Amino acid sequence: MGLFSLPASTGSVLTLILVNIVLSVSFLRSVLVFLFRLLRPHPPSEPSLVDRFRSRFDAVARSSTDCRICLVQFELGSVVNRLACGHLFHRSCLETWVDYMRATCPLCRADILEGRGLLN
C-alpha cells in the first residue's frame, strides 16, 4: 500500500508547481516594492497650517482686554496676535485653533491665511 496506491495525476502536480511559482513571484514583487518605497527619497512635506500661520503673523504685546479663545485677560508683556479684522488672541491659543485645521478668525470667521485676514 502506501503512497504508490494513490492515483498518479500529472495535471495536479503541474498546477501545484504553477501556483507555487505565481505565489513566489508575487511575494518577491511585494518585497521589491517595499524596498523601493523604503529607499527612495521622500519629497519635502507641505508646511502645516501652524507653520504657515507663524510665518505670516507679527506678534504684538498688549496689557489690556482678554483672549476670546481662552477668556483669560492678557497680562503685561504677554505675546498676542492681532488679526487683520482687529481681534486679539494669545499666540498659543490661536496656534491651537489653527492646528485644528481652522484657518479663520475664531470670532468673525475671516480667512487668516489667504491674505484677507492677515495683518500685513
Rank of each mutant, 00 (worst) to 15 (best):
S26E: 14
I69H: 02
R109K: 09
L71D: 04
V25E: 12
L88I: 00
V50E: 04
L28Q: 07
A110L: 11
R52T: 08
A59Q: 13
H90E: 05
L18P: 00
R91M: 10
T104Y: 01
V22N: 07
L83N: 00
R29S: 12
D51P: 02
D58V: 10
N81K: 04
F34I: 07
L49G: 06
L71R: 07
L28P: 01
S26Q: 13
V72S: 09
P106E: 03
D58W: 10
S64V: 10
L38P: 01
H42I: 07
S45M: 15
T15D: 14
A84V: 04
G77A: 04
V19N: 09
G77Y: 02
W97F: 05
F89A: 01
F89D: 00
V31I: 08
N20T: 12
D51Y: 07
L94S: 02
F27I: 08
F74S: 04
D99I: 10
L39W: 06
C85Y: 00
V22A: 11
S24I: 11
G77H: 04
R109C: 08
R102G: 01
G86W: 02
H87S: 01
S64Y: 08
W97A: 01
S30G: 07
A103F: 05
F36E: 06
F57T: 15
R37C: 11
C105V: 02
V80M: 06
R54F: 12
L16V: 05
S64D: 15
C108A: 03
V80Y: 03
L16I: 09
V98A: 03
E75W: 07
S26P: 00
S92V: 14
F36P: 00
L28C: 13
Y100N: 08
A61H: 15
L35F: 07
F74Y: 05
R54C: 15
S92I: 09
G77R: 04
V31D: 09
F34T: 06
R68W: 01
F74D: 02
S64W: 06
E75P: 02
